[in-house]
Amino acid sequence: MIFTKSKTLALRSEEEIVLVRQATRSWMVEQRFTLVAQTKMMTATSELARNAVVYGGGGSARLELLEESGRVGIRVQIEDRGPGIADLEQAMTDHFTSGQGLGLGLGGSKRLVDEFEIWSEPGKGTRVSITWWK
């Protein structure tokens, strides 16, 4: 796998959630991903970025443009050094929320993208990686 481009953005505020999802969109527009692909990745990015800000106390987003056997992909990795998630299975379940949300962010994001990976350790933080292949 070749990384043709990468960039790390801070994720500390509501404004930065918008900047990160817009960056994801503009990279995908530039690479001519379909409109549906752009919309789904942008939405998943927004959900994960908000989780990092709201529950993780802020973090960062790393955008990567990938190439593998002639295929182009985009990966967004969002991480925070917040409290982590003790019960991942529960957190991934639709409609589970510890706050005021709909509990759709994690489960919904997973449905929206090609690849979804999550790592979390209580007391250390959370990292989620989503990828879309063209």
Binding site: L35, V36, Q38, T39, E47, L102, L104, R111
Partner: peptide, 14 residues
């Protein structure tokens, strides 16, 4: 609502 947005909303589960 744009069609791509509608598709995404449904898949998100909203």
């Amino acid at each position: 609502m744009q069609p791509a947005v509608a598709i995404t909303i449904v898949e998100l589960g909203m």
